[in-house]
Simulated assay, not measured.
Amino acid sequence: MAKDTPSDDMEEAAMGLRKIIHVDMDAFFASVEQRDNPELRGKPVAVGGSGGRGVVAAASYEARKFGVRSAMPSVTAKRLCPDLIFVRSRFDAYKEVSRQIRRVFEHHTPHVEPLSLDEAYLDVTEDRLGIGSATRIAELIRQEIKAKTQLTASAGVSYNKFLAKLASDQNKPDGLCVIRPGEGAQFVAGMPIRRFHGVGPKAEEKMKRLGIETGADLAAKDIAFLRANFGSFADYLYRAARGIDLRPVRAHRVRKSVGGERTFSEDISSGSALRETLENIIEIVWERIESANARGRTVTLKVKFTDFQNMTRAKSVAHWVEDKADFARLSRELLEEALPLPMPIRLMGLTLSNLERGDEDEPPRDDAQLSLL
Rank of each mutant, 00 (worst) to 15 (best):
A292V: 03
G260T: 02
R313M: 10
N310R: 05
Y238A: 10
K256P: 00
D245Y: 13
D307T: 10
M311P: 00
A241D: 04
K302I: 01
V299E: 01
R250Y: 11
T312V: 08
S265E: 12
A273Y: 06
R275V: 05
R297H: 15
I244H: 05
E287F: 13
T298R: 04
E290Q: 14
S265C: 06
R275S: 12
A241W: 10
I268G: 02
R297M: 09
H252E: 10
F308S: 03
S291W: 05
K302C: 02
F264Q: 04
K302T: 02
S257K: 04
F308D: 02
N280H: 15
I289E: 00
K315F: 11
V303Q: 02
S270L: 08
S272R: 13
V285Q: 02
R275T: 08
L246E: 04
A251R: 15
K315R: 15
G243A: 09
V258H: 03
V249Q: 04
V285L: 06
K304V: 12
S272K: 10
R262C: 09
N280K: 11
E287N: 13
G271S: 10
T263F: 14
E287D: 12
Y238R: 08
W286H: 07
A251W: 11
G259L: 12
K256G: 11
Q309V: 09
R313E: 03
G260A: 08
A240W: 06
V303I: 15
R247H: 12
V254E: 07
A240E: 04
R313H: 11
A251V: 05
L274W: 07
I281V: 15
I281M: 04
E290H: 04
T312Q: 10
F305W: 09
E279P: 00
R288M: 02
T263H: 08
I284M: 06
G296C: 05
V254K: 15
R253P: 00
D245R: 12
V249L: 07
K302R: 08
R250G: 03
S269T: 06
V249D: 01
D267E: 13
L274M: 07
A292S: 13
S265G: 11
T263C: 14
R313N: 06
S269N: 05
A273Q: 11
G260D: 03
L278E: 02
T263K: 14
F305Y: 15
V303D: 02
R288N: 01
E287T: 08
R242Q: 14
L301Q: 04
K302M: 03
R242S: 06
D307A: 13
R242G: 03
I289S: 01
P248M: 08
D267W: 09
V258N: 01
R255L: 14
H252I: 03
S257L: 03
R253E: 11
H252A: 14
E261N: 06
G271W: 05
R295F: 15
A314W: 02
T277K: 10
R295K: 15
G260M: 05
A314T: 11
V258P: 00
